[in-house]
């Protein structure tokens, strides 16, 4: 079966520094694939190349078999690639419902429509409200997004992504900077998405990664040194020395 996302020999250098060194991995349909690695391993550069904000020097990215390597971020989004940002990006002056309705609008016909009031488009609002309920923000639909707590903004980002009905969801450190309770709530939310869509999860919280991931790829100095199930990664000697060893002493 064609993988939902296929990354082949992705290479990117900044001057003499090879930040992505022939990175190769596949994400199967419905799989939650985590990318872990120590600071400076090139995780952020990788997600920039996956989402389309940075062009690779060489290599290929395919989504459901279609080459998307040269496509812009909006073009990838329209094909079904959604993402959250490491520093949350929401439309702060909009209500939650408006934020999510805009994501529905992006895939529901032309936005070069000038006459009909968008706030009264029931089809957009209904789907947006549904996505907000899914992430647990159903009660806050009329709130202004800028007034949300950090964790709630993360939830909103996921609602925006879900409203796009994506094939692949990139989550860039969704638990970073959240408190214990918020972190647990987000983990439960992400666990609930498993199987419904393919997810690439970049995350520092090892406990969450090992609990959530179907497979994990370990990135060290721009290279994938191992890919496998959580038990395989835990048992991998190379990973232990390069990365996990630091924590387990």
């Amino acid at each position: 079966m064609t993988p939902a996302l296929s990354v082949q020999s992705l290479t990117k250098s900044f001057g003499a520094l090879k930040v992505s060194d022939a990175i190769t991995f596949d994400v199967a349909e419905g799989e939650l694939h985590a990318i872990i690695g120590p600071n400076g391993a090139g995780k952020t550069t990788l997600i920039h190349q996956l989402s389309g904000s940075l062009a690779p020097d060489a290599g290929r990215i395919a989504m459901a078999g279609q080459d998307i390597t040269r496509l812009s971020m909006p073009a990838r989004a329209r094909l079904g690639l959604a993402r959250s940002f490491q520093i949350t990006r929401i439309l702060a002056g909009f209500t939650l419902l408006e934020n999510v309705a805009l994501a529905v609008q992006a895939r529901s016909g032309s936005s070069f429509r000038f006459l009909r009031p968008v706030a009264r488009e029931a089809a957009l609002n209904d789907q947006a409200a549904e996505a907000l309920v899914t992430v647990g923000l159903g009660q806050s639909a009329r709130r202004i997004a800028g007034t949300l707590s950090h964790g709630e903004k993360r939830q909103l980002e996921i609602a925006i992504a879900l409203a796009m009905r994506p094939k692949v969801l990139l989550l860039d450190e969704p638990l970073a900077g959240t408190g214990h309770a918020e972190s647990a709530r987000l983990s439960t939310l992400i666990a609930g998405l498993k199987g419904r869509l393919s997810i690439v999860l970049i995350e520092h919280d090892m406990e969450a990664v090992f609990a959530l991931a179907d497979r994990i790829s370990v990135l060290v100095q721009g290279r994938v040194i191992a890919t496998g199930t959580p038990p395989e990664i835990r048992a991998n000697a190379g990973v232990r020395t390069a990365y996990l060893g630091e924590e387990e002493g």
Binding site: L91, R113, R116, I160
Partner: peptide
């Protein structure tokens, strides 16, 4: 009328956060 239409909402969205709009597909 224009600012309350689909077009107007997209325009205001680009004011709020262009990168978010691109990530949505605009």
């Amino acid at each position: 009328t224009i600012t309350r239409s689909r077009f107007g909402r997209v325009l205001a969205g680009t004011r709020e956060d262009p990168a978010r709009m691109q990530a949505m597909g605009f």
